[in-house]
Simulated scan of single mutants.
Amino acid sequence: MGIAKKEILRLLAGGEKTGLEMVQASQILRCGTVYVHLSQMMDDGVITAREDDGFRFHYSLAPSQPPAFPAPCV
Rank of each mutant, 00 (worst) to 15 (best):
G2D: 15
I3N: 09
A4E: 11
K5E: 13
E7Q: 15
L11H: 03
L12A: 07
K17N: 10
K17E: 09
K17Q: 15
G19Y: 10
G19M: 04
E21I: 00
E21H: 03
M22V: 05
M22Y: 08
Q24H: 14
Q24I: 07
A25Q: 07
A25W: 01
S26W: 06
S26V: 03
Q27I: 02
Q27S: 09
I28A: 02
L29A: 14
R30A: 08
C31T: 10
C31M: 09
G32N: 10
T33D: 03
Y35P: 08
H37D: 12
L38Y: 00
L38C: 02
S39V: 03
M42S: 01
D43C: 01
D43Q: 11
D43S: 08
D44T: 01
G45S: 05
G45Y: 06
R50P: 04
R50Q: 14
E51I: 06
E51P: 01
E51R: 07
D52F: 12
D52Q: 14
D52I: 14
G54P: 09
F55M: 10
F55S: 09
R56Q: 13
F57P: 01
F57V: 05
H58Y: 13
S60F: 06
S60R: 11
P63V: 06
P63W: 10
P63C: 10
S64I: 04
P67L: 00
A68D: 07
A68H: 07
A71V: 02
A71E: 08
A71T: 05
A71H: 07
C73Q: 10
V74P: 12
